[in-house]
Design a protein around this nucleic acid. Sequence first.
DNA 1: CTGTTAGCGCCTTCAG
DNA 2: CTGAAGGCGCTAACAG
Lengths: 361, 361
Amino acid sequence: MTVTLSDVAARARVSPATVSRVLNGNYPVAAETRERVLRAVDELDYVLNGPASALAAATSDLVGILVNDIADPFFGIMAGAIQSEIGGPGGRAGGERMAVVCNTGGSPERELTYLTLLQRQRAAAVVLTGGAIEDEEHGAAVAAKLRRLTSAGTRVVLCGRPPLPGEPVKSGGGAADAEGGGLVALTFDNRGGGRHLTEHLIGLGHRRIGYIAGPRERTTTRHRLEGHRDALAAHGVEDDPLLTVHGPYDRASGHGATLELLDRARDLTAIVAANDTVALGACAALRERGLRIPDDVSVAGFDDLPFSIDAVPALTTVRLPLHDAGAWAGRIATGRESPPAGGIATVQGELMVRGSTARPR
Amino acid sequence: MTVTLSDVAARARVSPATVSRVLNGNYPVAAETRERVLRAVDELDYVLNGPASALAAATSDLVGILVNDIADPFFGIMAGAIQSEIGGPGGRAGGERMAVVCNTGGSPERELTYLTLLQRQRAAAVVLTGGAIEDEEHGAAVAAKLRRLTSAGTRVVLCGRPPLPGEPVKSGGGAADAEGGGLVALTFDNRGGGRHLTEHLIGLGHRRIGYIAGPRERTTTRHRLEGHRDALAAHGVEDDPLLTVHGPYDRASGHGATLELLDRARDLTAIVAANDTVALGACAALRERGLRIPDDVSVAGFDDLPFSIDAVPALTTVRLPLHDAGAWAGRIATGRESPPAGGIATVQGELMVRGSTARPR
DNA sequence: CTGTTAGCGCCTTCAG
DNA sequence: CTGAAGGCGCTAACAG
């Protein structure tokens, strides 16, 4: 029924091995023979059987990209960038690697499931994006899985996620280790970004700053919040626990938390949100309460997603180079670029001061 | 090195066949035996070899989701919904299917490449989302590829994309055909949505309406534009060619096109954008020119992406049930729900009238 | 440069 | 209900 490699071989009057060789292009074949094979492939409309090939070669062209929420541009942008570096020619047979993005929805179980699935598929590489869940047990399970993946030859890159806790830093860091063994982490400086943002606000004269944090137990949430607190402490501003609210990374959370904060502290003059999406929800709530931005309350976000500049007024935020970081991760995942020394690099954010923040009245 | 099925069999003191049977759960096995096998699997930390299994069974658990732009929430939302219906238990061994999203970036070549890759992996199903490219040659190539996929047993679902041109409608439409053969299309009523939107504007009194269309040669672009023109024609409003500009589905396009339209026709009182992202760019340009929305110019978008309600003023737009449509497509792709009669269904949009449109001055 | 020979790890009839 | 045997389609040493 389906046409196989030997069918092609027969048509081209060569052995199956030869067909395999021209398809994989990893072995010298006479130009004329190659031509004949290629023609047969075309005439028979042959398509390589991926599973069979992966089985025999003990590797596959699959590269997995794990994201927490595919509907969130934060992840979409990174995934697209990673994938653009992977999709190109360079894989085995047919010349194409296949980048696949897997949506965990932020669920620990799904994260592990996908990791297992990827392991099962003998993925060539895996890129995990975004913050990690800070649950000891889950963290250990993920770490174990990743270790097993790397030791099986799968390259693992963390993009926008801190290095594994308790993971020994890659020794050496010298010459490009051909071995994909090491686990590479490209982490965002969430803490520094958070600090700069709050310092900006303090610099403007704000002292009562509400903070809408992300969900608990996530590294991103914690680091950004720590940055905020660092700034408060450094400038002798009181860190009133009433001014911090936790919630998911979505608009509704920003909306609800803002109403809550407003009720708790009528004297607040600024709100820092865990990310831009949350900030948008905060703006909406403020508007509903008849408060003007930034005249009555300043608002700031994080990430600088594309829509943030179109908020009215435009959102002050911390720009993370999501695209560049993703592209970098992609190149490392394909082995096209050697990992940073020590296997760890920190990507800086940049404070973008726009119209949504101003001096308090 | 790596632990295989026979290792598990040995440990559990059964034959490999038995292990396979408990793993796949598609064959009766004594409770006690199963228990023993499961324990061995656990102790040995065994992970099924996907390629080997796919080779032997001639199917895989992979479900491909093709999107034009993964950084665009329009696709992210659909992809997430599709995937949430697929990710659950129900696949073979291990119980999990793997939904993978493939980003074509709107490139015809990549679309075909991914289709080939998916075919190569013997994907269980493929879902293509969003508008199609209207190039005769490419269309034929895609159609041929899809036909081959379906005839190889891969279920193919189009989500938010019109049925293949020249494709005969599925005969019958009667009982659930167990065969996954037919190609299913869940299309969006872009034309109707476009018409309603422009009718809304005409109803408000607008006569000079600028239209920022998407890229040429895309079904989505064409259908929305046709809806707009239908409305103009139905109400005897002149369709001035000067008032239509084409461009990509991004913010920059909306921004540039708006400046262009403003220069071309100072008398325009409303702008309809191809989608919400483009509309945001239009709003930005209007603001730069010192024009107020909707007092000076009304603006409307399409899709009702999450951020649209946070635009200031909130965007009038056509809400497409992206999540529901995606979930539906996912259920059909997994065979959990039988396809609509005839293999084709149209999903309606809903006009959302908000603050960005009003009567012209 | 090319053909031959063995598997890769699993599933699936077929017996028992 | 369980075991034994063959093969899925391809690649990777080896020989020539």
